[in-house]
Write a protein that binds this DNA or RNA. Structure first.
Lengths: 264, 264
DNA sequence: CTAGAACTGTGTAAGGTGTAGACAGAAATG
DNA sequence: CATTTCTGTCTACACCTTACACAGTTCTAG
């Protein structure tokens, strides 16, 4: 009963069982010839080689040596397979090299996540279907929260840090990947692309409608022939971390109610 | 010469011309019977009704009363059409109701963006193909930067604020939308879903592998029967803004070099 | 030991998708 | 007028996900 997903939509509970590999294997019929890991692994390999657009049920099936429809005995839909791929692509965090202070640990976290996703750019193409639920993604969550254990931040604020930092990383990597993706077409690398964007903005801001943007452009913030992608990343990240430092030095411990809400 | 995109990949310059409607209409042949706005508008209407998955070239063509292939006289590919939809969906910012202080203005910005994207949830399904380039999106950029004009932040830091805040908003809305999307399947609303997530985390953290996460869960941070989605959003947002406040009170004006980099 | 249930992998097919290529006709230019 | 350029259409291709029925295999209940 209720082992198979209903018709139409996706079943979150079922996906959870797949993510955690906690589905009772069923003792009745013949044992399946495949493992979920084989399937997801094959899909990941294809994505590594051809991107997420190259992943089709046919190719995955071919890779593991079964028919297309056989996959549906293991995975309810392709979207679920994509979620499983994201989870596998994330992998477990390796905190052994992280420093001791929270600032350095969060920094390491962000850099590690960046490294992982830059290495597997297809991950940003997978539409997120919900909050982190798989063991790997949850382990990363734990790693961040544990890094904040010794800070005077409230639990709510720790969650806030997690959301802000992970959101920042995701967006930054997403931008970065889209740039390096456009590069082969324009035949330019990261820095040159920044210059191209700069030139385009210069043309656009050549009228009085965009004074602030014009100022920013003229300051050369986009013409970053002076910085690498990782440096830009670190700059934005430290901006957040410095903000947190300043914040809790100022705010100190306290619950959610301690927030200085300035009305609505 | 060079008016049509080459074969295969997408041409950023061509997309730019489409976004800004700066393509010389061509004086030779018969005038086209359609406007780009008609096409993109029709696509947006479909997306509003059926989501981005419901948008197909065929349906858009049918809606504007031409054949499928006619659309390709106006748009080089579907992906470009999606980018155009995103730009149109964004719309121009309305800053008339924004307060005077930067804190309030950024808050208004974030709330406005959230409102727009919640109203058009399909926007988060459009994979971003690059940095903001269309007139509407650039106008939002300008609005943020202008809000920071009177602060002592450096130009680099203003860009930092822009990246961090917009990234946060995007991620928050993305999460929010994915939750309300899963809701119809599970038959629960926002708050109940938070409870479900909480329960799932409780089960997961019922072992000593996740001490920090367990603490967070037990604090009830996810069991937000006390808060609405917008309140959660504001909490995280103010976390950032308070950080900025504390930061520049502490750091003051200064260029990028003033950053306290703690080495690598 | 046997009947039946449960489960697997497969073949077929339906109903969609984006878009390449060739073509007839219309509009403006020389 | 002849020519060039642009438009909309038609046909066709390759490919996608997945619903469904079916034969074969394995275990369990009686």
């Amino acid at each position: 009963m209720a082992t198979e997903p209903k018709g139409g939509g996706r079943d979150p509970q079922y996906l959870l069982d797949l993510l955690w590999r906690t589905r009772p294997p069923g003792t009745r019929g013949p044992r399946g010839s495949l493992t979920l890991d084989q399937i997801v692994g094959a899909a990941v390999e294809i994505a590594d080689a051809e991107g997420v657009e190259g992943v089709s049920m046919r190719k995955v099936a071919e890779k593991v040596g079964v028919t297309t429809m056989s996959l549906y005995r293991y995975v309810p839909s392709k979207d679920d397979l994509l979620d499983l791929m994201f989870e596998m692509g994330t992998g477990m965090p390796d905190t052994s090299d992280w420093p001791d202070d929270w600032y350095g640990r969060i920094e390491s976290y962000a850099l590690d996540v960046r490294r992982v996703m830059i290495a597997r750019p297809w991950m940003i193409d997978i539409p997120i279907s919900g909050p982190p639920m798989g063991p790997n993604n949850i382990a990363w969550m734990e790693a961040v929260l544990a890094s904040l254990s010794d800070t005077p931040l409230s639990e709510d604020d720790k969650l806030g840090v997690l959301m802000v930092v992970s959101g920042f990383v995701l967006n930054e990597v997403s931008q970065e990947v889209s740039v390096t993706r456009a590069a082969p077409r324009t035949g330019v690398g990261y820095m040159e692309w920044g210059m191209a964007y700069q030139r385009m903005l210069e043309k656009v801001t050549d009228n009085p409608d965009y004074p602030a943007l014009s100022r920013l452009v003229k300051s050369g913030a986009f013409a970053d022939d002076r910085s690498t992608a990782e440096e830009d990343f670190l700059y934005g990240l430290r901006f957040i971390l410095d903000g947190i430092t300043a914040l809790y030095a100022l705010r100190g411990p306290g619950g959610r109610e301690a927030r200085a809400g300035n009305g609505t």
